[in-house]
Computed example of a mutant assay.
Amino acid sequence: MGWLSAGDTYEVSLVEHKVVARRGSGRPLKTLPKALRDHPEVDRLRQLAEWLDRHSAACLAQVDAWMVSSVPVPTALLGRIWPDPAWQDVLRDLVVVGDDEEAGFLRDVTGAGELRVVDLDGETLRLAAETVTLPHPILLPDLDELRDFAADLGVTQRVEQLHRATWAKPADVRERATEVTDFDGAKLPSRATLLARATALGCQVSGSIITCRVYESGRIVEATGWLDGDYWSDWTMGSLSWRLRDGRQLRLPEVGPVAWSEGMRMAAALGGGQPVEAEKGA
Rank of each mutant, 00 (worst) to 15 (best):
G256Q: 01
T193K: 15
V97N: 00
V19T: 01
G98W: 08
R46G: 04
P275L: 08
V155N: 03
A112R: 11
R213S: 13
P137I: 08
C59D: 09
R27W: 08
S190K: 02
K187R: 15
D148M: 12
G79P: 04
A65Y: 04
E16Q: 12
V109I: 08
A192N: 09
D119M: 07
V68W: 03
F183A: 10
V68F: 05
L134G: 03
E101N: 11
L146A: 12
P189E: 04
G271E: 07
S69M: 05
Y231G: 12
V12R: 01
M266P: 01
P141V: 07
A198V: 06
R248Y: 00
H39Y: 07
L78Q: 04
G104D: 06
D144H: 10
L60D: 11
V132D: 01
A128Y: 06
R174T: 06
P28V: 07
P137Y: 05
G202S: 07
V42M: 09
V276A: 11
R37A: 13
L29F: 02
L52A: 04
P253V: 08
D119Y: 04
L14S: 01
R243C: 01
H163M: 11
D99R: 14
L36Q: 00
R219A: 12
A278T: 13
T178K: 11
V221Q: 00
A171V: 11
R191D: 14
